[in-house]
């Protein structure tokens, strides 16, 4: 087991290296630069050149790459946009994104797993078709469109919109109200963020369950006259959940991608919006760091999933 984990950890190193290279290359090949992005007659090119020099942007790309890695590790990396340390910027934004994604993930798994089982148990029935249909409806809705419709609906119902991470006029309110205010602000964005995921995971759950049901031991259990529900929930579920664990690793990147749009629509001060703004203003250090961090998160997610899988299913280890 330990050997397996060490082997997987060692495999991460070239991948991480590749990730930093691609992050660096993509943003540096893009036209434009973090300074001089304005058309302001009061800012002559020589001033821009001087600024580039101050930022080491005049050095060869290889040198810049080494400098970036060095600064990233020593924490001396600053945003081009406002001179703040990049790590501090990310630390400020990360909680908002993590909370949003965590709530979305909870919604996804708590809803998708029962839905998947439900569908599988009644394969091709009316209910199965209905859930299938709604699952696909969920995957197919343009999330920003739905978000707009929901925002308009809240304005119509409550007379004011639900934006950002908390209400604005809340000085001196009770703790309970503040907590509920946070929850209220989380509700709509996290549901919208979750919709696509629910659909995907419940489909996987369904087919995974179907596969398990067809296995001999389940058929045997059924033949022995055990009640169907016991068979499904006790024997089937544990095995059907296995492939779902690995999916968690893949869910992370798509949730992060999804949060770019959701965070813009709901004025949610999270990492997705930060990354999007940073791409537009060519804030190299922020873009590269966010790319690297999120890719690392995905790697860790995959690794954890692999380990869980190995723990749960002994056969894996010997492959």
């Amino acid at each position: 087991m330990v050997g397996f984990i060490i082997k997987r950890l060692l495999q991460l190193i070239p991948t991480l290296f590749g990730i930093t290279i691609i992050s660096f290359a993509v943003i540096h090949i893009a036209p434009g630069s973090p300074v001089g992005n304005t058309l302001n007659p009061k800012v002559p090119p020589r001033v821009i050149e001087q600024m580039k020099k101050n930022y080491d942007l005049d050095k060869p790309l290889s040198v810049q790459y080494v400098l970036w890695i060095k600064r990233l590790i020593t924490g001396k990396l600053y945003s081009f946009k406002d001179g703040k340390p990049v790590m501090k910027k990310i630390k400020e934004r990360l909680p908002a994104t993590i909370v949003l994604n965590a709530v979305a993930s909870i919604i996804i798994f708590s809803l998708a797993i029962p839905l998947g089982i439900f569908s599988a148990a009644r394969q091709y029935s009316f209910w199965d078709n209905t859930t299938t249909f709604f699952a696909y409806l969920g995957i197919s809705i343009p999330s920003f469109w739905l978000a707009y419709l929901l925002i308009l609906a809240t304005v119509k119902i409550f007379g004011f919109p639900v934006l950002g991470i908390r209400s604005f006029f809340l000085e001196g309110a009770s703790t309970l109200r503040i907590i509920y205010d946070r929850i209220w602000h989380l509700t709509i964005p996290s549901i919208i963020l979750a919709i696509g995921g629910i659909a995907v995971i419940s489909r996987y759950m369904r087919s995974s369950m179907l596969e398990v049901i067809r296995q001999d031991y389940i058929q045997t259990a059924k033949a022995k006259g055990l009640p169907e529900e016991v068979v499904y929930y006790k024997h089937g579920l544990r095995n059907a959940l296995l492939p779902i664990i690995t999916l968690f690793g893949f869910l992370v990147p798509s949730l992060i991608s999804g949060s770019v749009i959701i965070e813009t629509v709901f004025a949610w001060p999270g990492i997705g919006r930060l990354a999007y703004q940073a791409v537009l203003s060519r804030d190299y250090s922020v873009v590269m760091t966010i790319n690297t961090i999120s890719a690392t998160l995905v790697l860790i997610g995959n690794l954890v999933a692999d380990i869980l899988y190995a723990v749960a299913d002994p056969r894996i280890r010997y492959r």
């Binding site: 409550f158 205010d181 929850i183 209220w184 509700t187």
Partner: peptide, 10 residues
């Protein structure tokens, strides 16, 4: 949580 809202008026 939505029942708590309506009260927040600027």
């Amino acid at each position: 949580s939505m029942f708590f809202m309506g009260f927040f008026k600027p």
